[in-house]
Design a protein around this nucleic acid. Structure first.
Lengths: 248, 248
DNA sequence: CGCGCTATTGAGAGAGCTCAATGTGCGTGG
DNA sequence: CCACGCACATTGAGCTCTCTCAATAGCGCG
């Protein structure tokens, strides 16, 4: 059953889902009544590991989290960054063995929701199931954009695209505005997400700053010229399918 | 209602789903009764285009199909290859605007199934919904592997990995065996899938042949040394989540 | 105030790209 | 049955984007 603390945590999920489609009172109540254990995590801490068989999902309340996988010789690829409201390992509900890892990027707080409770929820509320399914499909759409970037965009365009994407995603959940947002990741994280080297990210960032498109100080991104950045990135937000504006 | 011809077409979907989990007689019957229009398509023909709002999904009966997106100056990224039994645009059921295109690679035959019928099906059979959801999640897992390749694997490893993946997928639906399968794609397709140039694919293929790992003649791939190929690719099939063996 | 992590910069190397020419197989029409 | 055309595969030469290795600088925190 939901305690007041859980309600607070789970309201993040409610808001996220409501940013996509309406929920009935009953549905909202069912979500808020999910059992959830809140945990506070340090930066760079694994939450779920490659090959694990989790029995719960992780709702992000605060901080950034990423999915990644390692190859030999320390090569790492980050697949996605996740922000509050996301459930980055929702897939574990249907795919029992993890094929990648989940870790914090920053300090974070998360709520763990047991699979059983989620399965019960979606069997009682097919609408919620559809929303969650849809969410995983949007995730896949973001993967495709990253593929497009790694396969066919220059380092410059790739970084620009990621910044556009993160800004829009953060804005949609009320964590950004006025072309300004937090960007609490190192250049090494950026490199591993974009298929580059941190050295090259550094140089390209310098170029991006040099052309006056953005500034980046103390983990804050300020987009000075949105249109030009979006153009350099060939950024078209359709793939994020943000049909409604979310509340803060 | 399903005609005998449709039954034949839809049995491909039944077999695909049964390769993952059991279906009840009722579920099987419901799938076989889906309305479906079969069409024969030429190579390199678009089926659904970026920005379309489709009202049906496409079940592949024969041939290879790919998903791709274009950037300026003719840059193309292929996101996935699909083979008989796949429903490559299942996502259009929940995401109404296409953020990429779907096209044939080879001659193909496909069955179009209206969204309405699919929505009705999944609302009556939550089990089928779960299976289809799961299928889209595996798709996303394949995207992640491609990302990993484009971000962190050499051209050599990337090609090797794709070959391993396609072989295993084809084998799972009975279209490959004895380390031999059809590979009806051009080096340009390969390049666009891997984020490379067709020239470089050509040279790397030569290298792969040279090291005796495989042969490639008249669109047929023969893996001469599976273990070495898999090792060069760092191929681990876990991400395909093929829990059961399929029938031919 | 010093350690440790991250950012920055330099120099040289290399994987993969571009441009361009040539070869090869196959389907079509005569 | 042969000639042609076209698409695809192959090869060469030179280039550049990105990487590697390595050193230096800056910043946050105990």
């Amino acid at each position: 059953m939901g305690t007041p603390a859980n309600d607070h945590a789970l309201s993040r999920l409610v808001r996220k889902l409501e940013s996509i489609a309406g929920l009935t009172d009953e549905e909202r109540h069912a979500i808020l009544s999910l059992p959830a254990k809140t945990r506070f995590l340090e930066p760079r801490q694994d939450i779920v590991r490659d090959a694990d068989k989790p029995s719960q999902c992780c709702l992000i309340l605060e901080g950034w989290i990423c999915r990644y996988k390692l190859l030999s010789e320390g090569r790492r690829q980050i697949f996605s960054f996740h922000i509050p409201g996301d459930v980055p390992d929702l897939q574990s509900l249907h795919i029992h063995t993890m094929d990648h890892s989940l870790a914090t990027v920053t300090k974070a707080s998360v709520a763990f929701i047991p699979h059983d409770a989620l399965r019960d929820l979606i069997s009682r509320f097919p609408n919620i199931a559809a929303l969650l399914w849809r969410d995983t499909l949007i995730d896949a759409g973001i993967f495709r954009q990253w593929m497009l970037g790694m396969g066919r965009r220059s380092a410059y365009g790739r970084i620009a695209h990621l910044f556009c994407e993160m800004y829009v995603k953060l804005e949609a959940v009320g964590l950004a505005g006025e072309h300004r947002c937090a960007l609490p990741i190192t250049q090494l994280d950026l490199a591993d997400a974009l298929g580059l080297t941190s050295v090259h990210v550094n140089r390209t960032l310098k170029e991006l700053r040099g052309s006056g498109l953005l500034t980046l100080r103390s983990n804050t991104l300020v987009v000075e010229k949105w249109d030009e950045l979006a153009q350099a990135a060939e950024f078209d937000p359709t793939y994020l399918h943000l049909e409604k504006r979310a509340v803060g």
